[in-house]
Structure formats: C-alpha cells, structure tokens
Amino acid sequence: MSDSADGVSRRTLLKAAGATLGAAAFAQALAPLASWAEGMSSEDFLATHYKELDAEGLKTALKRIEEDTKKKTGVDVHVTADAPIPGVKFGYALNLSICIGCRKCAEACHEENNHDRKTNNSYIRVFEMDKGSIDFAKGTVDYAHPVPQPDKFYMPVQCQQCDNAPCVSVCPVEATWKEADGIVVVDYDWCIGCRYCEAACPYHARRFNWQAPEVPAKEINPDQGYLSNRLRPQGVMEKCHFCLHRTRKGKLPACLEACPTGARVFGNLLDPDSEIRWVLANKRVFVLKEELGTKPSFFYFFDE
C-alpha cells in the first residue's frame, strides 16, 4: 500500500463513519420490532412447555392468561386445563345420510372457540359434493343456495384426531402432541410458527394465525381451555381439539350441540356400550384417506 500515514488514518476514519452510518440505518430499519416487543412480557418470552409445568406452574400460567386477557380485552375469562379422563378415548362419527350442509356446526365452532371474526375462521369446512362420488375434486365449500340440494350430499371435514398423526411427527419443537384421550393439541405458548404441520396434514385441519385474531369483547366466550379455545397469539398454529374444555367435563362438542339433524355422534371409543361403538359396529363406516395410514378417530357413515 502506498498510502501515507495521513491517508491511512483518513481511510480508517471514513470506514468508521461508514460502519456507524450502516449500523444506524439497520437500527432504523428494524424499528418496527420495538413496538412488537413492547406488547410482550418476559413471561411470554420464557413460557414453559405445557408438559413441563407442575401443578403450581400451571396455576400461575392459567392466572397469567386470565390477567392478560383482562388487560387486553377487559373481559373476565375463566381458563382451565382439565387432564384427559382415564379410560376415555374420544371418537367422532358423522352421518352423511342426514347431514344437510347447513353449516351450523362450522358457525358454532366459530363462536365457541373465539375464532377471528374478520376471517370467519372455523375448524370445520363443509363440502357440497356430487352424489355418486366422494371425490373432493367434485366438491366445493363455496355454495350459496338453499340446502340440501337434491343431487348433492354434504361432507363436513375437521381434524380427524389421527392415531398416527403426521402433524405431530413433523413438529420440530414438540409443540403439538396427542393426549391420552386421543386429542391432538397445540401449545400456543410453545409453537414457533414454522407451519410444517400444516403442510403435513392430509385433511386441511390446521389453521395459522397470520395475525392476532380479533373478537369483540362482548362476543368472547369466557369459558376457556389452555389447550383449546383461549385467545390465540399471533404467529402460531391452531386446530380442532374436540372442544376439550367441554368434553373433558362431560359435555358435548359445540358442533354436535348445534347440529339440527343429529348427524353427529360423539363418545368414548373404549366404552363398549357407547353410541359411537354401536355406530362403528352396525353402520357402513369409512375414514378419510384410509390409504395414508393416519388412523383417524373421526368416522363417516351412511344410513341407507
């Protein structure tokens, strides 16, 4: 280098100025992160995985969620974390002969589970299908006419609560797993939002919170579960949980209660006297995409 000592120092000075300018520019570019971090407490950031919470930790976590909800929405909610009931494995069956495609189930899910109002989200999609085929390529969810149409049948699809769930295997951080009663759940405080589970699910059962869901305060369902219908944060995955905050207390899922035709049958697969076991033993039953080996706990059946 032929720089004089003076030249070198000037060059160093220019470099330092450039570096400072660059750093300042990056800080400015990343400024939106500051407002995002403001809305987050250190408890949010350091939340523990659901399975690692002891009784005391769980109590604190439930209280934190209740207080957070109060602060953000002004609503007093009650958040529970019921454990699976021993000796119970939940199953769901749906009678395709009497479903009329009214979508009351999807609506009930929307309200029960505090879904984002703007996107009209629901865990249930109801397909109107051509009679004579169960090819989804010939079905549509976008129908707007009186139901049922004579040449159609209707097929609601929601999480199939697979025994061999692809979404659970692919999760890189174990944020989703299968509970002892067969329900596949998501820990909203642990999910990193990579959406690998959404790609893996063959039933389009998973939903991502592309932004923080919004529910008007007076419409919030205050009866909430840690692993089910509490208000979800932005950027995490969610899915149907068989209304575990109800079903683990002996109640029925909201979608079943809303069904006007009685097409839905919910119960304990381990109880030989349950209605669902009677359906499985006596009706023509099938599961969706059986060839994939996912072993659903959700069954479809016909009457005639």
Partner: peptide, 29 residues
C-alpha cells in the same frame, strides 16, 4: 427459514437441551 417462522422470538425452543428438539422424528430438526 428464519423469516418464514411466525414466532422468531421462540427460536430458542429449537435448541437441543434448552428447548424441546424433536429429533429424530422431525425432518426439520
């Protein structure tokens, strides 16, 4: 991969030993 993640603040959940690293089941790990 970093920008595709919905919750970059939770990336530490992936660190083996500190978070819960679902290896060997998840291909992502």
């Amino acid at each position: 991969v970093g920008v595709d993640i919905g919750r970059p603040d939770r990336i530490w959940h992936m660190i083996p030993g500190v978070g819960r690293f679902n290896w060997p089941m998840s291909m992502l790990t």
